[in-house]
Write a protein that binds this DNA or RNA. Structure first.
Lengths: 187, 187
DNA sequence: ATAAAAAAGGATGTATACTGATGATTATCG
DNA sequence: CGATAATCATCAGTATACATCCTTTTTTAT
């Protein structure tokens, strides 16, 4: 495999006669003081990717992504919701909601129609096929969630989730969703 | 604002005479047992988005994304690294590395050239402009990292980071990067 | 030495995720 | 009532993030 040994060693001075020295010592010092694996944002990004991988592994047969299932979940408890409310509930951008809905609609899991009360709004709801999918897929989705934290003991798991929730509340104003909206109807 | 009240209430039965009842009670039960904000994967995704928002806020003047800065960091300590090694070190897909490098090259922060030792490989390194950028941008990046966890006390912050690292190691085989590779040269 | 296997990178296509601009509809204020 | 605000959706554009297929180059096995 290629990934195990340091990459710089694979070529280094041998293949690049142009290069004179090693890395800039000032930058080297910066990177040593705050390397990638000490940057919380980097760690969170990696964990996010792992969740994606686990989700795909468990839910491959359905061809549904985490975001898509999140949207389907909200629609399963809140039929006929407009796109901006969906964006707030899910914590993603409104244009992204429209994209995801379009794909789900094309596959027959979601139906959209203009509201008659306010003709600016487009309301989305699950089709019967969509409802069936949400129910059938739920165990696989739940397994992905469990597996993400299964290497922690019960105590650490609870603390971890509690800490993330605290961070989300503290940073409510960043990202796209006021956290309150995500409790729409799930309480 | 629009995001504060439950979305389903905004139309509900009034605007949609077609609808007969509320949500499917079976799905409702599923969503109540495992709502979005109890799904670790969902929480991690939200936290990831918040980090992005904080990073952009701190680093807006530079027009550099978190992934781009991660790549620049690796190059600052490991010049002349090939794209697959960079992908392993950063934990992203190799095609993604090629995309990111192309953008950084176009802006003059990175130079790429074929290796003479192995003509399949493309080696990347920082230009002088790139080195200057990494150094100048470092404080803003560090602020974004600090702010993400600043609502935690020192104890909780350390536990949180330790837990993420444990999760990353336990799920080493998922996602794109064997964690070992990310310690390339930063030790 | 040559055929097969492996590795690196490129090209293409899909799916998030967001910004900014535009247009349509509704609400509001003078 | 009519000009203006605000609201909702869409469109265009950028940037990750990944899969799959393909070509070139290197390695390996026979």
């Amino acid at each position: 495999m290629k990934g195990s040994e340091p990459a710089a060693k694979r070529e280094g001075a041998s293949g690049t006669p142009v290069a004179e020295v090693g890395p800039n010592p000032i930058l080297q010092a910066l990177a040593e003081r705050l390397p990638l694996w000490k940057r919380p944002g980097y760690l969170v990004r990696r964990l996010h990717q792992i969740h994606y991988a686990l989700f795909f592994e468990e839910c491959a047969e359905f061809g549904i992504t985490p975001v898509q299932y999140g949207l389907l979940t909200i629609l399963s408890t809140n039929p006929d919701t407009d796109q901006i409310s969906l964006a707030n509930a899910l914590g993603i951008d409104r244009t992204n909601v429209a994209d995801v809905l379009a794909r789900l609609e094309q596959r027959g899991f979601v139906a959209r129609m203009r509201s008659r009360a306010d003709r600016r709004m487009v309301l989305a709801r699950l089709t019967p096929e969509g409802e069936e999918l949400v129910g059938r897929m739920h165990p696989a989705m739940a397994r992905a969630q469990t597996r993400l934290l299964e290497s922690l003991d019960e105590d650490e798991r609870e603390r971890f989730v509690a800490t993330i929730l605290k961070l989300l509340e503290a940073n409510n104003r960043y990202g796209r969703a006021p956290l309150g909206a995500s409790k729409m109807d799930h309480t």
